[in-house]
Amino acid sequence: MSTILGFDFGEVRIGVAMGSTELGIAHPLETIAFEENDKKFARIEALIREWQPSALVVGLPAYLNGQEHEISRLARKFANRLTGRFNLPVHLVDERLSSAGATQALNEVGVRGRKQKTALDQVAAMQILQSYFDGVGVITE
């Protein structure tokens, strides 16, 4: 059994989720909301020390037609930085509609409007990681 950390990358906030390969179930963990990259990566390093993951998963955003855009490029850059800094395998997962799915999931449990802001990114990360566990949308390059 090993732990995997999943990330929903954003320029302002990064959602984080965790799950174990044994159960194959992802759980929201936290939202990292620092402006400075050094602080973001310091928090990620602390999470990696705490959870000792065997791999990391990063959501790769794209337009509905699959075409990548600027945030896609930044998410790939983030994934490459994770690889370089932490020497762990990093897997990319198609994250189209993960934020919409996270919004719907939060609505279903009664978390609406502004109350969603603090949880939205980590629930999106959970959905990205769950897609990885389910073998859906994993990008092989």
Rank of each mutant, 00 (worst) to 15 (best):
residue 96 R to H: 09
residue 59 G to M: 12
residue 31 T to L: 08
residue 51 W to H: 07
residue 34 F to Q: 03
residue 25 I to Y: 15
residue 112 R to M: 08
residue 70 E to A: 15
residue 52 Q to P: 03
residue 87 N to M: 12
residue 110 G to N: 09
residue 112 R to F: 03
residue 79 A to F: 06
residue 68 E to K: 15
residue 63 Y to Q: 13
residue 53 P to W: 04
residue 31 T to E: 11
residue 70 E to Q: 13
residue 23 L to H: 13
residue 90 V to L: 07
residue 48 I to D: 05
residue 68 E to M: 11
residue 101 G to L: 08
residue 78 F to V: 06
residue 112 R to H: 08
residue 73 R to T: 11
residue 94 D to W: 07
residue 42 A to P: 05
residue 69 H to C: 08
residue 54 S to T: 09
residue 78 F to C: 10
residue 40 K to P: 04
residue 120 L to I: 11
residue 34 F to P: 01
residue 61 P to S: 14
residue 88 L to K: 04
residue 44 I to C: 00
residue 70 E to P: 05
residue 95 E to V: 14
residue 112 R to G: 03
residue 79 A to V: 02
residue 106 L to V: 04
residue 33 A to Q: 01
residue 118 T to C: 10
residue 76 R to H: 08
residue 100 A to M: 08
residue 89 P to V: 02
residue 40 K to R: 08
residue 95 E to K: 10
residue 30 E to G: 03
residue 67 Q to K: 15
residue 66 G to L: 12
residue 40 K to G: 07
residue 96 R to E: 07
residue 76 R to G: 12
residue 107 N to D: 12
residue 35 E to L: 09
residue 126 M to C: 14
residue 102 A to F: 07
residue 19 G to K: 12
residue 72 S to V: 04
residue 30 E to D: 09
residue 59 G to E: 13
residue 41 F to Q: 07
residue 121 D to Y: 00
residue 59 G to R: 07
residue 52 Q to V: 03
residue 30 E to Q: 15
residue 122 Q to P: 09
residue 81 R to I: 14
residue 105 A to K: 10
residue 45 E to K: 09
residue 59 G to I: 07
residue 84 G to F: 13
residue 106 L to S: 06
residue 19 G to A: 14
residue 72 S to N: 07
residue 100 A to Q: 06
residue 70 E to V: 13
residue 62 A to K: 15
residue 38 D to R: 00
residue 48 I to M: 02
residue 39 K to R: 08
residue 75 A to S: 13
residue 34 F to W: 01
residue 103 T to K: 08
residue 27 H to K: 10
residue 33 A to E: 06
residue 33 A to I: 01
residue 121 D to W: 03
residue 67 Q to N: 13
residue 47 L to F: 03
residue 51 W to L: 00
residue 53 P to F: 00
residue 55 A to L: 11
residue 91 H to P: 02
residue 112 R to I: 10
residue 74 L to Q: 15
residue 27 H to G: 01
residue 112 R to K: 12
residue 64 L to I: 13
residue 106 L to E: 06
residue 49 R to G: 05
residue 94 D to M: 05
residue 74 L to P: 08
